[in-house]
Design a protein around this nucleic acid. Structure first.
Length: 572
DNA sequence: GTAGTAACTTAGTATGACCTTC
DNA sequence: GAAGGTCATACTAAGTTACTAC
């Protein structure tokens, strides 16, 4: 690229073109795709109440099918889920239904559930042609509604389909689980596009809630969801210019933090000694955010969401102080539920001053009291803004994730390794980041089995290797006796065979290690959201690793800017 | 400071396409 | 061609941040 930092050129050009928060000049799209209308159950699929067949009204039946489809799920056994579901279901019933159906436990959805299972089974058993037909229909939909024109580019839309109605499945212990997520109608929809574009037509007989032309935002379509009352949006794909640029900007901000992080660290260390309680709390919280990559931790309305916390919203009950633990001094034991109700558990030795401060913050408090009672994310972010323009709590997560990847790659990559071994090193570096950011996953259901399969493959390969080695040995012995060209050649080919099998075996063993270490760790989130892709691109270039080994097709599309931009000497 | 709203990023999981193996 | 495993993708919930009005 002629200007070294290609993206910077683009941004300058961008800034010139779009002053003060203008996101686009032209935006045209086809509007959203609505969920298919409800298809009533066939007559022979029955619902039973209190042991007796009962024909439900269409509206009540639709909501009943949502429950029936989830019958095998643990959710439907939870009291809150059942209570919320039943309450919302009753709202959809006719008055007769309402007076008959008074107890969820007397409802028998099993026949309906069996019907849906049979349906999904039938879907799996469909012929190639039928599947092809569905595929083509999806492609047609994508072609028609999946793209928009933003300025001079045709861009892929991320989620052009409106979320279908169903039962709300919150994560963790969510007080609203089981509530009815209502069907979204054109009358709920706000369309955003440019004035001079072809405005999408609502479905026949319907109207949009509103059509607006706001080029200070990036969304195409929005509606208000009925569970939390929050707004949902249709936006562009990560491969789009508008998302890519924002992503690039994010990493540039993190790189600016790199330049002043030492100063900031010195500053908060000083602040641990401050006379002001607020300043001390801010400094300790920032230390956690920096050292442990914790999230900011906004306050949440009680009873509206699952009880989860981040740094600023930590409560006394979430930490334990150990003046000494397992031979280490001043250990803080964290145990709390973070985003998505993922548990954060960690024992961390901290500096004495931090420890003493924590003791102070916890004095005379109840377990359910805020640890940082003088602090919230707004105060913290205002302070960060003063330290560096554009600095917020989450920049630390990005910074620490990316710098960790870079440093781990340096440390772990062995120049003499072959490609699979180098990729293992990459994954290990990625894993270090995922552990830092606490990106967990449920172990895959098939994990044990797939490990066993892999192991038996390894065993088979080992036997094969032993055989090949025996053959090589006898070929060598043979060649020694015969001393002719043909037997020499045989030795050579046997040697090659041994080498080939050795390589295959190693590849399998590496795969097994990688998989085992990854059992409960999710690499995708950090790869997609926290790791400056230019680090990975540079690493691939440096070691001759094909980029496809690190990024799949979608990821390559998302990171096209970085693949284009980064050379092998790129430094985060 | 507080509370509420809007916009946008980050997150784990369910689903289904695809590939391999028998 | 069925079965089984793996991987990518779709989905949508759950965060963060900025901003506004009191």
């Amino acid at each position: 690229m002629e200007c070294g930092i290609g993206g910077a050129c683009l941004a300058v050009w961008e800034e010139e073109r779009y002053p003060e928060g203008i996101k686009w000049k032209f935006l045209e799209h086809k509007g959203p795709v609505f969920a298919p209308p409800y298809e009533p159950l066939p007559e022979n699929v029955k619902f039973y109440y209190d042991g007796k067949v009962m024909k439900l009204s269409t509206k009540a039946e639709e909501v009943a099918t949502f429950f029936a489809k989830m019958l095998d799920h643990e959710y439907t056994t939870k009291e809150i889920f059942r209570k919320n579901f039943f309450k919302d279901w009753r709202k959809e019933m006719t008055s007769e239904e309402k007076s008959t159906i008074t107890n969820l436990s007397k409802c028998d959805f099993t026949h309906m559930s069996q019907y849906f299972k049979a349906q999904s089974e039938a879907r799996k058993q469909m012929s190639k042609e039928e599947k092809q037909k569905i595929k083509e229909e999806n492609e047609r939909l994508l072609k028609e509604y999946g793209y928009c024109v933003m300025d001079n580019h045709k861009e892929r839309i991320a989620n052009f389909k409106i979320e279908p109605p169903g039962l709300f499945r919150g994560r963790g212990n969510h007080p609203k689980m089981g509530m009815l997520k209502r069907r979204i109608m054109p009358e709920d929809i706000i369309i955003n596009c440019s004035k001079d574009s072809k405005i999408p037509a609502p479905p026949p007989g319907h109207k949009w809630k509103e059509v607006r032309h706001d080029n200070k935002v990036t969304w195409l379509v929005s509606w208000t969801e009925n569970i939390q009352g929050s707004i949902k949006y249709i936006m562009l794909n990560p491969s789009s210019r508008i998302k890519g640029e924002k992503d690039w900007q994010k990493y540039e901000t993190a790189r600016r933090l790199k330049k002043c992080v030492d100063k900031i660290r010195n500053q908060y260390r000083e602040d641990w000694k401050s006379k002001e309680m607020k300043v001390r709390q801010r400094a300790v919280a920032l230390y956690f955010i920096d050292k442990l990559a914790l999230r900011a931790g906004n306050e949440k309305e009680e009873g509206e969401t699952a009880d989860t916390v981040g740094c600023c919203s930590l409560r006394v009950e979430h930490i334990k102080l150990h003046p000494e633990l397992d031979g280490q001094e001043y250990v803080v034991e964290f145990d709390f539920l973070g985003k998505d109700s993922i548990r954060y558990y960690n024992k961390v030795p901290v500096e004495k001053r931090v420890f003493k401060n924590l003791q102070l913050f916890m004095e005379n408090k109840q377990p359910e009291d805020d640890l940082f009672d003088r602090l919230n994310t707004s105060i913290l972010n205002k302070h960060l803004q003063d330290l560096m323009e554009g600095l917020t709590a989450k920049v630390f997560r990005t910074y620490n994730a990316s710098i960790t990847l870079q440093q781990q790659l340096k440390e772990l990559t062995n120049p003499d390794d072959n490609i699979p071994a180098k990729i293992l090193s990459y994954n290990r570096a990625n894993r270090a980041v995922a552990i830092l950011c606490n990106h967990q996953r449920a172990p895959p259901k098939t994990f044990e089995k797939s490990m066993m399969n892999l192991q038996s493959k390894i065993d088979a390969k080992k036997e094969q290797l032993a055989d090949a080695r025996r053959e090589l040995k006898s070929a060598k012995a043979d060649a020694k006796v015969r001393r002719d060209e043909k037997s020499k050649k045989t030795v050579e080919s046997k040697k090659k065979a041994v080498q080939r099998i050795e390589e295959q075996l190693m590849k399998l063993e590496v795969q097994a290690t990688d998989r085992e270490e990854n059992k409960q760790i999710a690499l995708g989130t950090s790869k997609l959201n926290y790791l400056d892709p230019r680090i990975s691109v540079a690493w691939c270039k440096k070691w001759g690793i094909p980029i496809e080994k690190i990024y799949n097709k979608t990821q390559r599309e998302k990171f096209a800017w970085a693949i284009d931009m980064a050379e092998e000497d790129y430094e985060f």
